[in-house]
């Protein structure tokens, strides 16, 4: 929990181009970048899923639920609980990790 708070502080304070190390590690670990474009993460250039940029402006998560931290976290953890028809696989992301990724995606410039 503590490192989450520290991390949120980091995200808010560092409005730089490069993603924080924790996020980069998670994205690389789960291979998000092989399916998605994430501009601030080098190598994340996949075209299978939609590009994840400017995410906080998007009205819906996966076209079905309002875009909030809670819904986005739930989608990253288990896409099929949000939309049973979703083509994004359940990657076994833990809830802490998903929450971190969601914060990052929704704060990314």
């Amino acid at each position: 929990m503590k490192w989450l708070i520290v991390f949120s502080g980091l995200v808010l304070s560092s409005c730089t181009q490069e993603a924080p190390q924790t996020v980069t590690t998670l994205v690389n670990g789960y291979g998000c970048g092989s399916c998605h474009v994430i501009p601030s993460i080098p190598g994340a250039t996949g075209r299978t899923g939609p590009p994840l940029q400017d995410y906080q402006r998007q009205v819906y998560v996966a076209g079905v639920l309002p875009n909030t931290h809670e819904t986005l976290t739930r989608f990253i953890m288990d896409p099929q609980t949000v939309d049973p028809r979703s083509a994004m696989p359940d990657l076994g992301v833990t809830s802490d990790e998903a929450s971190l990724l969601a914060s990052y995606l929704r704060a990314e410039p």
């Binding site: 899923g49 939309d83 028809r85 979703s86 083509a87 994004m88």
Partner: peptide, 21 residues
């Protein structure tokens, strides 16, 4: 507008609306 996805690359995505091949 950000209600639906940008369609400039919709033709070359692997899935339509994230659900159909």
């Amino acid at each position: 507008v950000h209600v639906g996805p940008d369609l400039s690359e919709a033709g070359s995505r692997r899935y339509i609306a994230g659900v159909l091949r």
